[in-house]
Computed example of a mutant assay.
Amino acid sequence: MSAKIPREDSVSTAHSRDLLRQARQRFTQQQIAAHVGKDVKTVRRWEKGETPCPAMLDATLRELLSGSERAVGTPARFRFVDLFAGIGGIRLGFEAHGGECVFTSEWNPFSNKTYLENHGDRHAITGDITVVPAADIPDHDVLLAGFPCQPFSIAGVSKKNALGRPHGFECTTQGTLFFDVARIIAEKRPAAFLLENVKNLLSHDRGRTFDVILQVLRDELGYDVHYRVIDGRHFTPQHRERIIIAGFREPAAFTWDALALPDEGPRLASILHRTDGTEPLLPADGDRFFDHRARRVQPKYT
């Protein structure tokens, strides 16, 4: 007997129902109804499975879950800063738990453009963090920093060796940016921080680079520090190992062992535009990315 392959629209509905269950852990049916523009009875029927979740619900619920709780009238639970922010990926997780971003630093103009499209910040994005006095940064509870990884990555070290250039902390343009993170932590003393870098940071310069980082965070700044290498394959269709460093101003009952990771992350097909006619038409996008008549991604995109 051959296995029955689920229809793609059924899979989409299942995803939406799962997102709805996540949303109901934080929001009431009334709040969800107001966000998606439906009445409470409709949300109740979706939740009970009496009515299939529409295609539009997936994106709308993701927006609700990734946004601050302030969007539905709940005050922010904590304030955080987003350093070396890229396009704002780390920020999403902290906003999903009720945090408010009060300061952003990223010097790449293309990343800034995408960041603003993603988050629509009320505050301006600060460029070069090295020229910003730590005292000028708003007070915050959590500091986030994906400080530049090129000086420590395998590819980055190989390239710099080939060019005869310094790497690690000897790389004055990027490697020393960790110390800008440290000076801000020293000045503002946030309750916690989360730092992210490549796995090779652990072994760079035979482990001496990471020893210096731990010495600064633990001995000089006095934080309770925990770290773990996590593979992005649990969350994205890509093998991408990163070291995550969590620090707490006061000793914390924290252990990375308590982190439950999904066994299987999403497949690449699950995030690509569908070409079988089931691609949802989002009013905000129209045919910008996908030609719904020709059922194909617009030619200028891969």
Rank of each mutant, 00 (worst) to 15 (best):
2 S>G: 13
5 I>V: 14
10 S>V: 15
11 V>P: 04
12 S>V: 09
14 A>S: 13
17 R>M: 11
22 Q>D: 14
23 A>Y: 09
25 Q>A: 12
28 T>A: 03
39 D>F: 07
48 K>C: 00
49 G>I: 13
50 E>M: 09
51 T>V: 14
51 T>H: 07
54 P>T: 08
62 R>F: 09
69 E>K: 05
70 R>V: 09
71 A>F: 06
71 A>E: 13
75 P>Y: 01
89 G>E: 02
89 G>P: 01
92 L>S: 08
98 G>V: 00
98 G>C: 03
98 G>I: 00
99 G>C: 01
103 F>Q: 08
104 T>L: 10
105 S>I: 08
105 S>Y: 13
116 L>G: 11
119 H>G: 02
123 H>C: 09
127 G>I: 00
130 T>S: 15
131 V>F: 04
132 V>M: 07
132 V>A: 06
135 A>D: 15
139 D>T: 13
145 A>M: 07
148 P>V: 08
152 F>A: 01
152 F>D: 00
161 N>A: 05
162 A>F: 11
169 F>A: 05
180 D>W: 00
180 D>F: 02
184 I>S: 00
184 I>A: 03
185 I>E: 08
185 I>T: 07
187 E>A: 15
195 L>D: 03
196 E>W: 01
199 K>I: 03
203 S>R: 11
207 G>T: 08
207 G>E: 09
217 L>Q: 09
223 Y>H: 11
228 R>E: 15
240 R>N: 05
243 I>M: 10
253 A>N: 13
254 F>K: 00
256 W>P: 04
258 A>V: 08
258 A>T: 14
262 P>F: 06
264 E>C: 10
267 R>C: 12
270 S>V: 07
274 R>Y: 05
277 G>P: 09
279 E>G: 04
283 P>I: 06
283 P>L: 10
286 G>V: 03
287 D>A: 12
289 F>A: 02
294 A>L: 14
294 A>K: 13
299 P>Q: 04
